[in-house]
Simulated scan of single mutants.
Amino acid sequence: MPTAILADDERLMRDQLRMRLGQVWPELEIIGEAKNGDEAIALVDELRPDFTFLDIRMPGKTGMEAAAAIGGRSHVVFVTAYDAYAVEAFERGAVDYVLKPPEQERLQITVQRLKERLAKPAGDVNASVTAMLSQLAEKIAAPKPKFLQWIQASIGQDLRMIPVEEILFFRSDEKYTCVQTDKFEALIRKPVRDLAEELDPALFWQIHRATLVNVTAIEGVTRDIRGRHLVMVKGRPEKLEVSRSFLHLFKQM
Protein backbone atom coordinates (compact mmCIF):
# COMPACT_ATOMS: atom_id res chain seq x y z
CA MET A 1 0.00 0.00 0.00
CA PRO A 2 1.23 3.54 -0.71
CA THR A 3 2.09 5.53 2.42
CA ALA A 4 2.14 9.22 3.36
CA ILE A 5 2.74 11.65 6.19
CA LEU A 6 0.93 14.96 6.72
CA ALA A 7 2.71 18.08 7.95
CA ASP A 8 0.64 21.12 8.97
CA ASP A 9 0.71 23.15 12.18
CA GLU A 10 -3.13 23.22 12.26
CA ARG A 11 -4.62 19.98 13.56
CA LEU A 12 -7.99 20.72 11.96
CA MET A 13 -6.38 20.98 8.55
CA ARG A 14 -4.52 17.69 9.07
CA ASP A 15 -7.79 16.02 10.08
CA GLN A 16 -9.58 17.44 7.06
CA LEU A 17 -6.87 16.37 4.63
CA ARG A 18 -6.73 12.89 6.18
CA MET A 19 -10.50 12.54 5.79
CA ARG A 20 -10.55 13.78 2.18
CA LEU A 21 -7.65 11.56 1.16
CA GLY A 22 -9.44 8.60 2.69
CA GLN A 23 -12.44 9.35 0.51
CA VAL A 24 -10.61 9.68 -2.82
CA TRP A 25 -7.71 7.26 -2.17
CA PRO A 26 -8.70 4.69 0.49
CA GLU A 27 -5.61 2.59 -0.29
CA LEU A 28 -3.29 5.38 0.87
CA GLU A 29 -2.08 4.77 4.43
CA ILE A 30 -1.34 7.85 6.54
CA ILE A 31 1.50 6.64 8.76
CA GLY A 32 2.47 9.86 10.54
CA GLU A 33 1.67 13.51 11.21
CA ALA A 34 3.93 16.49 11.91
CA LYS A 35 3.30 20.00 13.21
CA ASN A 36 6.31 21.64 11.56
CA GLY A 37 9.03 21.14 8.99
CA ASP A 38 11.57 19.71 11.43
CA GLU A 39 9.14 17.00 12.56
CA ALA A 40 8.32 16.21 8.93
CA ILE A 41 12.00 15.68 8.08
CA ALA A 42 12.43 13.41 11.09
CA LEU A 43 9.37 11.36 10.12
CA VAL A 44 10.63 10.94 6.56
CA ASP A 45 13.95 9.68 7.95
CA GLU A 46 12.15 7.26 10.27
CA LEU A 47 9.19 6.05 8.19
CA ARG A 48 10.28 6.55 4.56
CA PRO A 49 6.79 7.42 3.25
CA ASP A 50 6.04 7.42 -0.46
CA PHE A 51 4.49 10.90 -0.16
CA THR A 52 4.96 13.85 2.17
CA PHE A 53 2.22 16.51 2.27
CA LEU A 54 3.86 19.77 3.40
CA ASP A 55 2.09 22.97 4.38
CA ILE A 56 4.09 25.77 2.76
CA ARG A 57 4.15 27.93 5.88
CA MET A 58 4.87 26.29 9.25
CA PRO A 59 6.80 27.22 12.42
CA GLY A 60 10.50 26.44 12.39
CA LYS A 61 11.41 25.03 8.99
CA THR A 62 8.85 25.97 6.35
CA GLY A 63 7.44 23.45 3.91
CA MET A 64 9.86 24.67 1.27
CA GLU A 65 12.87 24.26 3.57
CA ALA A 66 11.63 20.81 4.59
CA ALA A 67 11.21 19.82 0.92
CA ALA A 68 14.81 20.77 0.20
CA ALA A 69 15.99 18.68 3.17
CA ILE A 70 13.83 15.68 2.23
CA GLY A 71 15.19 15.69 -1.31
CA GLY A 72 14.59 12.42 -3.14
CA ARG A 73 13.55 10.38 -0.12
CA SER A 74 9.84 11.04 -0.63
CA HIS A 75 7.49 12.57 -3.23
CA VAL A 76 6.62 16.04 -1.91
CA VAL A 77 3.11 17.49 -2.18
CA PHE A 78 2.76 21.13 -1.15
CA VAL A 79 -0.35 22.31 0.68
CA THR A 80 -1.36 25.95 0.28
CA ALA A 81 -4.25 28.33 0.86
CA TYR A 82 -2.88 30.88 -1.60
CA ASP A 83 -4.64 29.85 -4.79
CA ALA A 84 -4.60 33.35 -6.34
CA TYR A 85 -1.02 32.95 -7.50
CA ALA A 86 0.14 29.59 -6.15
CA VAL A 87 -1.80 27.46 -8.62
CA GLU A 88 -0.17 29.01 -11.68
CA ALA A 89 3.26 28.77 -10.07
CA PHE A 90 2.77 25.14 -9.14
CA GLU A 91 1.48 24.19 -12.57
CA ARG A 92 4.49 25.82 -14.24
CA GLY A 93 6.80 24.05 -11.84
CA ALA A 94 5.13 20.66 -12.35
CA VAL A 95 4.81 20.30 -8.59
CA ASP A 96 2.01 18.39 -6.93
CA TYR A 97 -0.12 20.53 -4.64
CA VAL A 98 -3.32 20.58 -2.58
CA LEU A 99 -5.38 23.69 -1.88
CA LYS A 100 -6.79 24.54 1.54
CA PRO A 101 -9.43 23.55 2.43
CA PRO A 102 -9.08 20.34 0.40
CA GLU A 103 -12.03 19.84 -1.95
CA GLN A 104 -12.81 16.35 -3.22
CA GLU A 105 -12.93 17.19 -6.95
CA ARG A 106 -9.57 18.99 -6.99
CA LEU A 107 -7.99 16.40 -4.70
CA GLN A 108 -8.92 13.63 -7.12
CA ILE A 109 -6.78 15.32 -9.78
CA THR A 110 -3.82 15.48 -7.40
CA VAL A 111 -4.28 11.83 -6.39
CA GLN A 112 -4.26 10.74 -10.02
CA ARG A 113 -0.95 12.55 -10.51
CA LEU A 114 0.47 10.93 -7.38
CA LYS A 115 -0.54 7.45 -8.50
CA GLU A 116 1.36 8.04 -11.74
CA ARG A 117 4.43 9.06 -9.75
CA LEU A 118 4.54 5.88 -7.68
CA ALA A 119 6.47 4.07 -10.36
CA LYS A 120 9.05 6.84 -10.64
CA PRO A 121 11.86 7.86 -8.25
CA ALA A 122 11.00 10.84 -6.05
CA GLY A 123 13.91 12.97 -7.26
CA ASP A 124 15.11 16.24 -5.77
CA VAL A 125 13.24 19.54 -5.88
CA ASN A 126 15.00 21.08 -8.87
CA ALA A 127 16.49 24.56 -9.00
CA SER A 128 13.68 26.13 -11.05
CA VAL A 129 11.01 24.86 -8.68
CA THR A 130 13.06 25.99 -5.67
CA ALA A 131 13.36 29.49 -7.15
CA MET A 132 9.63 29.57 -7.86
CA LEU A 133 8.83 28.56 -4.28
CA SER A 134 11.20 31.19 -2.91
CA GLN A 135 9.33 33.89 -4.84
CA LEU A 136 6.05 32.52 -3.57
CA ALA A 137 7.37 32.59 -0.01
CA GLU A 138 8.09 36.30 -0.29
CA LYS A 139 4.49 36.97 -1.30
CA ILE A 140 3.06 35.11 1.68
CA ALA A 141 5.60 36.28 4.24
CA ALA A 142 3.01 38.13 6.35
CA PRO A 143 2.73 36.76 9.89
CA LYS A 144 0.31 33.86 10.15
CA PRO A 145 -2.87 34.70 12.07
CA LYS A 146 -2.73 33.23 15.54
CA PHE A 147 -6.49 32.86 15.80
CA LEU A 148 -8.68 30.08 14.41
CA GLN A 149 -9.51 30.58 10.74
CA TRP A 150 -11.65 27.46 10.21
CA ILE A 151 -14.07 25.38 12.26
CA GLN A 152 -14.46 21.67 11.51
CA ALA A 153 -18.08 20.77 12.26
CA SER A 154 -20.53 17.91 11.72
CA ILE A 155 -23.62 18.25 9.56
CA GLY A 156 -25.40 14.91 9.70
CA GLN A 157 -22.85 12.33 8.58
CA ASP A 158 -20.65 14.90 6.83
CA LEU A 159 -17.79 17.06 8.07
CA ARG A 160 -17.59 20.67 6.90
CA MET A 161 -14.75 23.18 7.08
CA ILE A 162 -16.42 26.52 7.90
CA PRO A 163 -14.53 29.83 7.63
CA VAL A 164 -14.99 31.62 10.96
CA GLU A 165 -16.10 34.86 9.31
CA GLU A 166 -19.20 33.02 7.98
CA ILE A 167 -20.31 31.98 11.47
CA LEU A 168 -23.02 34.13 13.07
CA PHE A 169 -22.78 32.71 16.58
CA PHE A 170 -21.82 29.73 18.74
CA ARG A 171 -24.17 28.48 21.44
CA SER A 172 -23.43 25.57 23.78
CA ASP A 173 -25.56 23.13 25.72
CA GLU A 174 -24.29 20.43 28.09
CA LYS A 175 -22.85 18.22 25.33
CA TYR A 176 -22.48 20.09 22.05
CA THR A 177 -21.89 23.57 20.67
CA CYS A 178 -24.14 24.76 17.86
CA VAL A 179 -22.36 26.57 15.01
CA GLN A 180 -24.85 28.82 13.22
CA THR A 181 -24.26 30.35 9.80
CA ASP A 182 -26.82 32.14 7.66
CA LYS A 183 -27.30 28.94 5.61
CA PHE A 184 -27.03 26.02 8.02
CA GLU A 185 -26.47 24.79 11.56
CA ALA A 186 -23.66 22.41 12.52
CA LEU A 187 -22.39 20.83 15.73
CA ILE A 188 -18.99 20.61 17.41
CA ARG A 189 -17.88 19.23 20.76
CA LYS A 190 -15.61 22.12 21.72
CA PRO A 191 -17.13 24.27 24.52
CA VAL A 192 -17.55 28.03 24.25
CA ARG A 193 -14.92 28.66 26.93
CA ASP A 194 -12.26 27.05 24.70
CA LEU A 195 -13.49 28.77 21.56
CA ALA A 196 -13.32 32.14 23.32
CA GLU A 197 -9.57 31.65 23.79
CA GLU A 198 -8.93 30.55 20.18
CA LEU A 199 -11.07 33.02 18.20
CA ASP A 200 -10.20 36.63 17.44
CA PRO A 201 -11.81 38.69 20.25
CA ALA A 202 -12.20 41.60 17.85
CA LEU A 203 -14.48 39.42 15.70
CA PHE A 204 -16.28 37.28 18.29
CA TRP A 205 -17.66 38.62 21.56
CA GLN A 206 -18.58 36.33 24.40
CA ILE A 207 -21.93 37.62 25.65
CA HIS A 208 -22.85 34.67 27.90
CA ARG A 209 -20.96 31.74 29.38
CA ALA A 210 -22.55 29.60 26.63
CA THR A 211 -22.65 32.09 23.73
CA LEU A 212 -20.22 33.76 21.33
CA VAL A 213 -21.52 36.12 18.65
CA ASN A 214 -19.90 37.49 15.50
CA VAL A 215 -19.70 41.27 15.96
CA THR A 216 -20.49 41.87 12.28
CA ALA A 217 -23.73 39.86 12.66
CA ILE A 218 -25.13 41.98 15.50
CA GLU A 219 -28.17 43.95 14.35
CA GLY A 220 -28.85 45.56 17.72
CA VAL A 221 -29.65 45.02 21.38
CA THR A 222 -33.10 45.03 22.96
CA ARG A 223 -34.67 44.30 26.36
CA ASP A 224 -37.51 41.95 27.16
CA ILE A 225 -40.25 42.43 29.77
CA ARG A 226 -38.00 40.83 32.40
CA GLY A 227 -35.31 43.41 31.78
CA ARG A 228 -32.88 41.01 30.12
CA HIS A 229 -30.66 42.36 27.37
CA LEU A 230 -30.95 40.39 24.12
CA VAL A 231 -28.75 40.55 21.03
CA MET A 232 -30.61 40.58 17.70
CA VAL A 233 -28.77 38.72 14.94
CA LYS A 234 -29.03 39.87 11.33
CA GLY A 235 -31.36 37.64 9.33
CA ARG A 236 -32.13 35.31 12.25
CA PRO A 237 -35.18 35.00 14.51
CA GLU A 238 -33.10 34.07 17.59
CA LYS A 239 -32.34 36.61 20.28
CA LEU A 240 -29.22 35.83 22.30
CA GLU A 241 -29.23 36.66 26.00
CA VAL A 242 -26.44 38.87 27.35
CA SER A 243 -25.16 38.09 30.85
CA ARG A 244 -24.66 40.99 33.23
CA SER A 245 -20.92 40.42 33.28
CA PHE A 246 -20.79 41.11 29.52
CA LEU A 247 -23.11 44.13 29.35
CA HIS A 248 -20.10 46.48 29.25
CA LEU A 249 -19.50 45.38 25.64
CA PHE A 250 -22.64 47.23 24.57
CA LYS A 251 -22.30 50.48 26.46
CA GLN A 252 -20.98 52.14 23.33
CA MET A 253 -23.95 50.94 21.24
Score class of each variant (00 low, 15 high):
145 P>E: 10
66 A>C: 11
144 K>Y: 13
55 D>F: 00
126 N>G: 11
165 E>D: 13
49 P>K: 03
126 N>C: 11
232 M>W: 04
113 R>I: 06
59 P>M: 12
232 M>R: 14
61 K>I: 04
178 C>A: 08
226 R>D: 14
2 P>E: 12
59 P>H: 11
98 V>H: 00
80 T>M: 00
111 V>C: 04
101 P>W: 01
249 L>P: 05
231 V>L: 04
239 K>R: 15
85 Y>P: 00
141 A>I: 14
225 I>S: 15
178 C>W: 07
155 I>M: 13
104 Q>E: 15
208 H>G: 09
122 A>K: 04
111 V>Y: 01
31 I>Q: 07
195 L>T: 05
44 V>S: 01
195 L>V: 10
213 V>L: 05
103 E>Q: 15
118 L>M: 15
208 H>R: 12
45 D>T: 12
30 I>A: 07
33 E>T: 13
149 Q>N: 13
251 K>P: 02
58 M>G: 11
199 L>D: 00
28 L>I: 12
34 A>D: 01
28 L>G: 05
32 G>P: 03
126 N>T: 08
8 D>A: 04
157 Q>P: 01
246 F>N: 13
43 L>H: 00
220 G>I: 09
102 P>G: 03
214 N>E: 06
194 D>F: 05
195 L>P: 05
210 A>C: 11
110 T>Y: 05
100 K>N: 03
104 Q>N: 11
243 S>I: 07
133 L>G: 00
123 G>P: 04
20 R>Q: 15
152 Q>N: 11
11 R>Q: 10
186 A>I: 08
235 G>S: 10
156 G>K: 07
29 E>S: 14
119 A>D: 14
56 I>W: 00
36 N>Y: 09
202 A>S: 15
106 R>Q: 13
76 V>R: 00
112 Q>V: 10
136 L>K: 00
128 S>H: 11
85 Y>I: 06
117 R>I: 07
30 I>W: 05
4 A>Y: 02
35 K>Y: 11
239 K>E: 14
211 T>V: 12
88 E>V: 08
